[in-house]
Design a protein around this nucleic acid. Structure first.
Lengths: 334, 334
DNA sequence: TTGAAAGCGATACCAC
DNA sequence: GTGGTATCGCTTTCAA
């Protein structure tokens, strides 16, 4: 639980400025807001007094009377993960285009931070967009009545809006690509930190099965490059005949790339690697990463668009519109 | 200029809830804020009414009366640049630890966005931390009286606080490292988008001169991997005898690494490369990047610490404390 | 336990 | 052009 920080007690108000300049509060307001109906010299006098006293208007008082600012809360599990950075950057851009402000919360992938964020966010923003892993009832309880757009998660409660991530076709294309190149033993590095298998794993299983290859060659991997390296080691130890691997995300794939090099396996000749996310960064490694790519710009923009509709009461986007589909982006690693 | 977005007109207030539940406004307030002095059944009735009406308290009204929330504005030139992402993540973490909220503004490296941000930020946050490239007078004009911490820039006006980036010793160590390995023709890829040479170039020149090597082998490079590749091409075309290169930042260095590979130059054997920033990401390329590294976590935390002091009126940190020094971090590229 | 009244700090609508 | 006054929505004394 965060403890509210005491900021410096607000001292100087519009009243002080008014008194100091020998005018009314009204006139101060006019001077500060560049209103027309005010005498030039009076205005200057007020401005001087304001500067003198170090006066700054209260954003709360101002917001209370002119209800014209919109602030969105953006909740991200880990800003250091380039995928979320890209989404955040896109959301910031879309919000800026509308003149909205965005408060960013990084929950550090921890359930407790997520809950504490939910608790405080309600009184700080007008609407929320982001990634959440807690239960819907917790989500609902702490954000009663708040417009919410959930990314990459399909809510049961109608009260939440969501952006669906559809990787089915993209992953199928990836595995098909590998099969077409003659691979028959295709492994996967899934995440390892949760009880249930990931959706990406489900897509992998479906694609492998449909294409007639063994979907069972799976190892867990921590969500980092080191994790990917270790995961690849485990996978190859368990299944030495694996010649291609699909990974939970690009970071893991890059770790696998590095580990493959260490093991003396040339990529893509001895081992083909395909990641997931399509990070800009994947283009910079050697060989450039082949990946099942998500359009993160679209993802962020879509989320902001939808939350805007919730906010203004405009028609919500159709479910068919609220989807970002992944597609295979060829690099040189597979 | 951003136009204020009209959010849905706030409808239901605490008054409506009170009426609906047949109690007074403060009873509603008590129920919602978990105060002690309230009957259980009354409380439940109020809560039900509130949920029924979809009531959410106004953050402005609440903020106005209990002045206990602190919001920092974080201004970043480009969130997609991993360096700024790291700084932002560190700042977010430090702010969260204090229970502060952070509104993030990405100015997309554009002067106009920076100015429009300055104009609106004043009425949205309690203090500002960030990177700015506009003039101090603009900075001052738009943020009168606002506590400000400038990063990587040394303000003349006493009104601004700042975090200094000191790369002098780090760059010297880098060039000394190269000289020790026998390099005598050491080039630099500086940025190319501004009139004046960068501070990093100044450090390079000083170090090269001190170490007795020619400081004049410099080419410009766009601030991207592609820019780095092109820049290296130009540098080598102009000075074919260059055997080592120091770059403006790690992204540029990674582009140079890639270009060197394309040219058939093995790194570090045929060409040594040293970047600047020390991105986490630099460890993932091959060979891992040697870099003059900045402690981005410390940088972000320091900025938040200092802005906190400004806010509470506590003693400011000593100038000697408000510095982040870069140091050479060995990788495999030099 | 509950309610009436007094702010919080600013802007808007009127008179003057 | 300028100054009262009401108001924004909520919390906090203080009585009842």
């Amino acid at each position: 639980m965060v403890s509210p920080a005491r900021s410096e007690p607000r001292r100087v108000t519009i009243h002080d400025v008014a008194r100091s300049a020998g005018v009314s509060r009204q006139t101060v307001s006019r001077a500060l807001n560049d209103k027309a109906e005010i005498d030039g010299s009076t205005k200057q006098r007020v401005l001087d007094a304001a500067r003198e006293l170090g006066y700054r208007p209260s954003r709360f008082a101002r917001g209370l009377v002119r209800q014209d600012t919109t602030t969105i809360g953006l909740v991200i599990p880990d800003l250091l993960n380039p995928f979320f950075t890209e989404v955040a950057a896109a959301a910031l851009e879309a919000a800026r285009a509308r003149g909205w402000h965005v408060v960013v919360y990084d929950t550090a992938d921890r359930a407790e931070e997520e809950l504490s964020t939910l608790q405080v966010i309600g009184s700080q923003v007008d609407a929320v967009v982001g990634y959440f892993s807690c239960s819907e009832s917790d989500l609902d309880r702490f954000t009663r009545g708040m417009p919410m757009v959930l990314i990459g998660r399909e809510p049961r409660m109608g009260r939440f809006s969501s952006i669906r991530i559809d990787g089915e076709a993209g992953v199928h294309a990836a595995i098909a690509h590998l099969v077409a190149r003659g691979h028959t033993r295709i492994g996967m590095l899934d995440h390892d930190n949760r009880a249930e298998p990931s959706v990406r794993r489900v897509w992998f299983t479906a694609a492998a099965t449909a294409l007639g290859v063994d979907p069972g060659l799976v190892a867990g991997a921590g969500q980092s490059a080191d994790g990917g390296g270790a995961g690849l080691g485990n996978l190859l130890a368990a299944h030495p005949d694996v010649t291609a691997v699909f990974t939970f995300n690009d970071i893991v794939a890059i770790g696998a790339l590095r580990e493959a090099r260490r093991l003396g396996r040339s990529v893509p000749r001895d081992l083909a690697v395909i990641g997931f996310d399509g990070l800009q960064f994947g283009a910079l490694v050697e060989p450039p990463l082949t990946s099942v790519a998500l359009d993160t710009r679209r993802l962020g923009a879509l989320a902001i668009d939808q939350v805007g509709r919730l906010l203004t009461g405009a028609d919500s986007l159709e479910p068919g519109e609220l989807v970002v589909r992944a597609e295979l982006r060829p690099g040189g690693s597979a």
